[in-house]
């Protein structure tokens, strides 16, 4: 049985203006590819997270579309050029319509 997807993020708490910071995200998810068959030989339906988005103070700065070849428990890292203090928001969209989210604050000195 699938457990509830749990996002985790690693963002620096502070940054200098103009600094390019690395953001690392992880979410627990089986990423069922739709290519496998169960014990009776019936295809197991696809259920993946197909979209990921990262925004800062409401503005999207990075987005990804994922296909079934992305590994289970998807890890995604990327960058952001710090300009002002504010909040990151990360969202993951599941094939089943559910949406998962995480936020993180960053202070820019």
């Amino acid at each position: 049985m699938a457990t509830k997807s749990q996002p985790r993020v690693r963002v620096p708490a502070t940054a200098k203006a103009g600094e390019i910071v690395e953001i690392k995200t992880l979410i627990s998810h089986e990423m069922e590819s739709g290519q496998r068959k169960d014990a009776d030989g019936k295809p197991i339906p696809r259920k993946i997270i197909h979209a990921f988005e990262a925004s800062f103070n409401g503005k999207v700065f990075f987005a990804a579309t994922w296909y079934p070849s992305v590994s289970a428990n998807p890890y995604q890292s990327f960058f952001y050029k710090a300009a002002e203090t504010g909040e990151f928001k990360f969202t993951w969209k599941d094939d089943d319509g559910s949406e998962y989210a995480a936020t993180a604050k960053m202070t820019v000195a």
């Binding site: 700065f61 990075f62 990804a64 579309t65 992305v70 890292s77 050029k81």
Partner: peptide, 25 residues
């Protein structure tokens, strides 16, 4: 792989650099 696509990234100038890491099957 069974499907040719792995992923698509959309970057913006705010990304700072067009660099990203993931893991695939």
């Amino acid at each position: 792989n069974p499907l040719p696509q792995i992923l698509t990234y959309r970057f913006t100038p705010e990304s700072g650099k067009a660099s990203a890491s993931i893991r695939m099957r």
